[in-house]
């Protein structure tokens, strides 16, 4: 099963399980989704529930909010996170606030799926990781399924959530092969997950960067360094307890985030660690982020701009160095 298959199965499950659920977005129907996630769903569920929309993010995200307020369970696909900026007003001013502004009388059980991230030479307008921006907004729940199991089961949990949930699917992961542990049928949206245990340093990450961290951890293990890899899964609200528990064990943290570092999710994580676990630290917190340029088109430049296992290894070695990396 690929990650793409897992998302596809999740959509089918949701559409079968609840007649209020429907999918809409650009090219989700006849084209089968720009990442081929919804291929065959139009034939199976019909045009009422698999709806192709005009190229207007503001309009169809707004329609999704309205449908959610009206009692339906819409899943809105936004082709990439870059395009979601056209719907910022709907997401930030409406979806995130209505429950609050109505004194809890209204809720917006909307799920927005967005492709995010770089690595496919899609250049600066289709490659950015802006999930950290959304993680700034109270009223939204931000999730980043990085594994096959989360791709398979996070959607159901998101649909069960009374608040708007944004699921960021890293576009590099759609072709990834893998399986779901036997017997697993649901996941939560609350907890970060340790994907590899280690005692020397905690790598805090999510999305595609998880696999770069696991690759780096493998290489580090050969050098006798045991890196723990923590997959955040949910970027808002952050699972502080899991983050601090791991950092308190290893006393060193490296944050790996495909977003830029300035004013970012990685900055937020660093601050929380300093606020909550300062006296457990043996070294300054280190970050491996995307170079502060619009993501380049050229392959070698794109590779150079993104966090990679070599940079992660170097950051780990620096925080483990005698001079503390500072």
């Amino acid at each position: 099963m690929t990650y793409r298959d897992a998302v596809h199965e999740a959509l089918r499950d949701a559409l079968q399980a609840d007649p209020r659920v429907f999918l809409m977005g650009e090219d989700v129907g006849r084209y089968g989704g720009s990442y081929a996630v919804s291929k065959g769903l139009l034939e199976e569920f019909g045009p009422e529930r698999i709806r192709d929309t005009p190229l207007s993010e503001s309009a169809f995200v707004g329609a999704g909010i309205g449908a959610a307020l009206g009692g339906l369970r819409p899943i809105v696909e936004v082709m990439t996170v870059n395009f979601s900026l056209l719907a910022l007003d709907q997401i930030v001013n409406n979806a995130a606030t209505l429950s609050h502004m109505s004194g809890g009388q209204l809720s917006v059980p909307l799920v927005i799926r967005l492709a995010t991230g770089a690595g496919r030479q899609l250049a600066a307008q289709h490659s950015h990781s802006l999930e950290g921006w959304y993680a700034h907004i109270p009223g939204l729940r931000i999730c980043a399924p990085a594994t096959i199991e989360d791709a398979r089961f996070m959607l159901a949990a998101a649909l069960a959530c009374p608040d708007p949930v944004l699921l960021f699917e890293h576009l590099y992961l759609y072709n990834m092969e893998g399986g779901v542990p036997p017997g697993l049928e649901r996941v939560d949206l609350e907890h970060a997950a340790i994907r590899r245990a280690g005692k020397d340093v905690t790598l805090i990450t999510y999305g595609w960067s998880l696999y770069k961290c696991l690759t780096a951890a493998e290489a580090l293990a050969a050098q006798g360094i045991e890196a723990e890899v923590l997959d955040l899964r949910t970027l808002r609200p952050l699972d502080d307890a899991a983050i601090m528990a791991s950092v308190r064990r290893t006393r060193r943290a490296v944050i790996v985030d495909e977003g830029w570092r300035s004013g970012s999710l990685s900055a937020e994580l660093t601050t929380r660690i300093v606020e909550q676990a300062f006296y457990d630290l043996e070294a300054p917190v280190a970050r491996v982020c995307t170079a502060e340029v619009p993501v380049p088109y050229a392959k070698h430049l794109e590779d150079a701009a993104l966090p990679g296992p070599a940079a992660i290894e170097a950051a780990v070695r620096s925080v483990l160095a005698r001079d503390g990396g500072g």
């Binding site: 006393r251 300062f278 006296y279 043996e282 070294a283 500072g326």
Partner: peptide, 9 residues
């Protein structure tokens, strides 16, 4: 001297 926070505690 660079004494780590953990070392201080």
């Amino acid at each position: 001297a660079r004494i780590s926070p953990a070392a201080r505690r």
